[in-house]
């Protein structure tokens, strides 16, 4: 799977990395237990600091999307595809809240929002932006 990073984007590079890996998992392209490149190799491919990759990996590890096994490597979490726990639902709500607040300010109605979600789910599944 190809990861495409835009160095000049407003989105931090570690987030671009994490988000694209997450999309890969959601799409099924990165199946559970698939190995990911080592921090050093990934950073070399990017031509960027290892710190950036580390940050992305820890971000994903915190979300239980990947597993960092010492001395063995980095893998997609065996339970990356799972039903959300109560805490995970609560965290998602918390993260969605400011976005919904902005949407309400911009007077998006429920249908429009539902349509947006529909469209994005389709895009993630098909693997296009």
């Amino acid at each position: 799977m190809f990861i495409e990073i835009e160095p000049d984007s407003a989105v931090p590079i570690y987030l671009q990395l994490a988000q694209q890996i997450m999309e890969g998992i959601a799409r099924g392209e990165l199946a559970p237990e698939t190995p990911l490149p080592s921090v050093r190799a990934f950073a070399a491919d990017l031509g960027m600091n290892m710190h950036t990759v580390n940050k992305a990996y820890h971000y994903l590890e915190e979300k239980k999307m990947i597993e960092i096994v010492p001395k063995k490597g980095v893998f997609i979490h065996a339970n990356a595809i799972r039903s959300a726990s109560t805490e995970e639902k609560a965290r998602m709500e918390e993260e969605l809240r400011p976005i919904l607040a902005e949407a309400l300010c911009l007077q998006l109605n429920r249908e429009e929002l539902a349509g947006m979600v529909e469209k994005m789910v389709r895009e993630i599944r098909e693997g296009s932006e």
Binding site: E4, D8, F42, D45
Partner: peptide, 13 residues
Amino acid sequence: KKEKVIVDLQFRN
């Protein structure tokens, strides 16, 4: 122009 860096996760395999 929009600069892009591409990484293939499978490259080393």
